[in-house]
Amino acid sequence: MRRKTISYAKWGYIFLIPFVVIYCIFSLWPLIQTFGYSFLDYVISQGSVTSIRGGGADTIQNKGFCGLSNYIAVMKSGGIFAVSFWNTIVLWLVGFIPQIIVSLLLASWFTDIRLKLKAQGFFKTVMYMPNVIMASALSLLFYSLCTKGGALDTLFGGPELLTKVWGARGVVGFINFLMWYGNTTILLMAAMMGIDTSLYEAAQIDGANPTQVFWQITMPLIKPILAYVVVTSMIGGLQMYDVPYIIGGTAGNPNQVLKTLVSQIQLGKNSSVGAVSALSVLVFIVSAILGFITLKLMDDNSIKTRYGKKKKK
């Protein structure tokens, strides 16, 4: 026997090939390109071509190196990054604040050993449903319900929410709330169910009321997962596109407040490539920071995946 042991390591590499190759072609290389474009004076002039798309539009391209001027242009007050970053944050907050409050409340009710709520499966199923429904369809539905003369607009006496800055923000926030509160509730429930029930029993014997139990036991113990939920939701929020785009159209009406970071990429893909690339790089940097926080959170707490190093005991 010449080969006593067979090394299988090569199979590990072989099986990784499809993933790595496809990732490099369709993600890594475009990312590098995006970085490169962000330093170029890369503008595609539409000339007389009226259509935004199509090969004919790519007539005049200007690709000189321009240093950081794209970054300066998009970040200055009124620049596409400054405006849409602010818009995106506001839209995210309007949906996320009610979402986290309601989800904490529901999760603590569902896991409360004294309340013993019935039909939990049914409630969870209904709560999660808006999350799987096509976001753009849900948004078009809300658009038609809230627009002038729509069903909800009539029901509430014709406030015409979609023509008002905070009204439109509220509608987008509400749709995001509807889509994500079930998801957040389920994640927080999983965290709360991981809490040792003897802690709750001990608190009950000591005469703690539900509010005290929530703030003194539940909250400190789910803090890591709560942080994880906040950060991942932020990363998701940065990518917000379908809902504000369908509600506000290309112009991001009213008053451009529904223009988000990602919708700027869609808008500028055939015209201001350099500026949009700079914006993309900034989005990348912000989400890299948030992603780094997420990985740290996953690393040193109860979210620690079942995979990975065995916990030292």
Binding site: F26, P30, L31, T34, K269, S277, S280
Partner: peptide, 15 residues
């Protein structure tokens, strides 16, 4: 996994 695909969208689209 943490990098949003949209961050590379413009590069991908031009490619």
């Amino acid at each position: 996994m943490m990098v949003p695909t949209q961050a590379a969208a413009i590069g991908l689209y031009r490619m």
